[in-house]
């Protein structure tokens, strides 16, 4: 039986917890882009974009290559395997449910009788 290692995926999900980085991934899902193209629609400085890119690269979601003075970024999440995607989806589903469980428990804490 395959014992799946979730760590790289946790890194990816951490990287995607930020809306700015999700916006960058969204842009890259339409095709490779230069750093300045990525930064253009975002309300953040170029150096902030570079920082975010570093996190996305460390998580294995994005790769970048420098040609002359232009750094081009490419989405790499297609490299993730099928099994990783299954586990990611299932973990995401259950984590969402447990978020809702936490909310439910906190809303009902006054009703506890034992």
């Amino acid at each position: 039986m395959l014992q799946y290692q979730a760590q790289p995926l946790d890194l990816a999900f951490q990287a995607l917890s930020d809306p700015g980085r999700r916006a960058m991934v969204e842009r890259l899902s339409r095709g490779p882009a230069s750093v300045s193209e990525l930064a253009e629609p975002l309300p953040m400085t170029l150096s902030a974009v570079v920082q975010h890119l570093k996190i996305l690269e460390e998580a294995g979601l994005v790769s970048s290559r420098k040609t002359g003075r232009v750094r081009t970024c490419t989405l790499e999440i297609a490299a993730m395997t099928k099994v990783e995607s299954w586990i990611a989806e299932r973990k995401r589903f259950w984590n969402q449910q447990y978020d809702q469980l936490e909310t439910y428990l906190s809303e009902n804490s006054q009703e506890e009788s034992h």
């Binding site: 039986m1 395959l2 014992q3 799946y4 979730a6 099928k82 099994v83 299954w86 586990i87 299932r90 973990k91 259950w94 984590n95 447990y98 469980l101 936490e102 439910y104 428990l105 906190s106 009902n108 804490s109 506890e112 034992h114």
Partner: peptide, 22 residues
């Protein structure tokens, strides 16, 4: 068919009885 395993751990602010009741 792919066999895989994962775990999720959460610490909830409620007694086991209340979590079980949920």
């Amino acid at each position: 068919v792919t066999n895989a395993m994962f775990t999720i751990e959460r610490v909830l602010r409620a007694s086991p009885a209340r979590v079980f009741a949920a």
